[in-house]
Computed example of a mutant assay.
Amino acid sequence: MESKRQRQVAEMIKRNFSIVLQQEGSYIYGAQPLVTVTEVHPTPDLSQCKIYVSIWNTDDKQAVLMQMNQDHQRLKAALAYRVRRHIRRIPDISFFIDETLDEMTRVETMFDRLYEDKQMPDSEEEG
């Protein structure tokens, strides 16, 4: 269970890191990939944050994540500049790929195929 302060810090970092990615992202991983912040999970002592990102419009998501890790200090400095008045110590940040949307798309595609193959009943036919 996250404390109220953890939730506040998570939301603030999520909002501000999204802006950092808009401003700095094209210099780090190029203009093609679309990277969005989906979740932020700070530790209870607020010393570390796991930032989950969703990466679209590229086949090699791992390469984008590696570029972000290589320019980790630049991203952290840009984040620190934005939140310096709200947090005493800037947490260490680490990046992870959020596969939730990819899984959702994959499951929807599977259901669509099942409906097309008539292996699933249509909801209109039941009623």
Rank of each mutant, 00 (worst) to 15 (best):
D117W: 11
I90T: 11
Q22D: 13
T109K: 15
Q48N: 13
P44C: 10
Y81N: 06
K76S: 05
S94Y: 08
N57K: 14
H86Y: 12
D60T: 08
L79A: 02
A77L: 09
F17G: 01
D71A: 03
F95A: 03
N69R: 12
V9T: 08
L79P: 00
N57Y: 08
L34N: 11
R7P: 08
A31F: 08
E124D: 13
C49G: 07
E103L: 07
M1H: 13
R84D: 06
S47D: 11
M12H: 04
L75F: 00
N69T: 09
Y115M: 13
H41I: 13
Q6Y: 08
Q70R: 14
D122C: 09
R74Q: 03
F17V: 01
E99L: 05
D122Y: 14
N16Y: 00
R7V: 14
M68W: 00
F17I: 02
G127E: 15
N69P: 04
E103K: 07
G30V: 05
A78Q: 01
S54M: 03
Q32H: 10
S94A: 10
Y29L: 00
M120V: 15
N69K: 11
S18I: 00
E39K: 15
R7K: 15
M66K: 14
D102P: 05
P121N: 09
R82L: 00
Y115T: 12
F17M: 04
T38D: 02
E125S: 15
R5I: 14
S3F: 10
T58K: 03
A31C: 06
A10C: 07
L34Y: 10
I97G: 03
V107S: 04
Q73H: 10
M110D: 10
E124G: 08
Y115Q: 15
E39L: 07
R84F: 04
R89P: 07
L79V: 01
H72K: 05
P42C: 06
K14P: 08
A10D: 12
S3A: 11
H86G: 10
M120I: 15
H86P: 05
M68C: 02
Q23F: 01
P91N: 05
T36C: 03
I55A: 03
Q119R: 15
M120W: 10
C49V: 12
K50W: 11
K14D: 03
F111T: 09
E125I: 14
F17K: 01
M1S: 15
A80V: 04
V35M: 01
S26P: 07
E124S: 14
R82N: 00
G25L: 02
V37I: 09
T105R: 06
S47Q: 14
L114K: 14
V9A: 07
P91K: 08
V35G: 01
D60C: 04
E116Q: 15
E2S: 13
I90L: 15
M68S: 01
N16K: 02
K118L: 13
Q22C: 08
R5Q: 14
I90Q: 04
I87L: 15
F95K: 04
E11H: 12
Q23K: 10
Q73P: 02
V9S: 06
E2W: 10
N57A: 13
Q73K: 11
V64D: 04
D102G: 08
